[in-house]
């Protein structure tokens, strides 16, 4: 085995670590599986976090970024507080999602699309807009379930729990300038 093939896999691990803020300790994984065992959606994941981290080490970039696992992460942080090596697992999942979007790698477009639709509304108005998000997302990905979801929407309206129009913040120009500059710096962490 040449040095090049050994350094190949290492690169993906370093890339993920560099893109995750703080002392994330991903290289300290001992493959104990506490993460997957603690995960509320672990059973539905194509790879548990433990397997995902082994794949990262093995440099299996495509398999890792194609996995539904990061998208099924509900950010409950059970794995993070239970990890005996104090790896910032939930934060690593965020990194993998952002990398998958950047690389355009996923089987199920609905997973990143929910996040991206949410982001679109925030970037347009400075606030989230639930009605728009739910309608746009479901129209695109689950049009048949819309009829089934209608009573939920109507009941939200009846209880005054959903806005019909979005709220725009006053400092929208300021926020846009900040986000634009931030995106131009996005590669800096990695």
């Amino acid at each position: 085995m040449t040095a090049a093939t050994i350094s190949g896999p290492k690169d993906f691990l370093s890339e993920v670590m560099a893109a995750t803020p703080g002392d994330n300790r991903l290289n300290h994984c001992i493959q104990c599986g506490s993460c997957g065992g603690s995960c509320p959606s672990g059973a539905e994941m194509e790879h548990t976090p433990r397997r995902l981290f082994a794949l990262i080490r093995a440099g299996e970039r495509k398999t890792v970024l194609m996995s539904n696992a990061p998208w099924y992460c509900v950010s409950c942080y059970y794995c993070t507080v239970r990890c005996p090596q104090n790896i910032h697992i939930t934060d690593v999942m965020y990194t993998l999602k952002a990398m998958a979007i950047q690389a355009g790698l996923y089987h199920d477009t609905s997973l990143p699309d929910f996040s991206e639709t949410f982001v679109d509304y925030v970037e347009k108005y400075g606030r989230s807009f639930e009605l728009g998000l739910a309608t746009r997302f479901n129209l695109r990905h689950h049009p048949l379930s819309l009829a089934g979801m209608a009573p939920l929407g109507l009941n939200m309206l009846k209880r005054g729990r959903i806005d019909l129009t979005p709220h725009r913040i006053e400092g929208m120009a300021q926020l846009s300038a900040i986000l634009e500059r931030a995106k131009s710096l996005e590669g800096v962490l990695a």
């Binding site: 996040s115 926020l175 986000l179």
Partner: peptide
């Protein structure tokens, strides 16, 4: 005064630095 959305669990899944900047504002 004039706070903006925190990005929930979604913004951070798309843009890392921008998510922290959104919260940073």
């Amino acid at each position: 005064d004039d706070w903006n959305c925190c990005g929930a669990t979604e913004y951070m899944s798309v843009h890392r630095v921008a998510a922290h900047s959104l919260i940073g504002r």
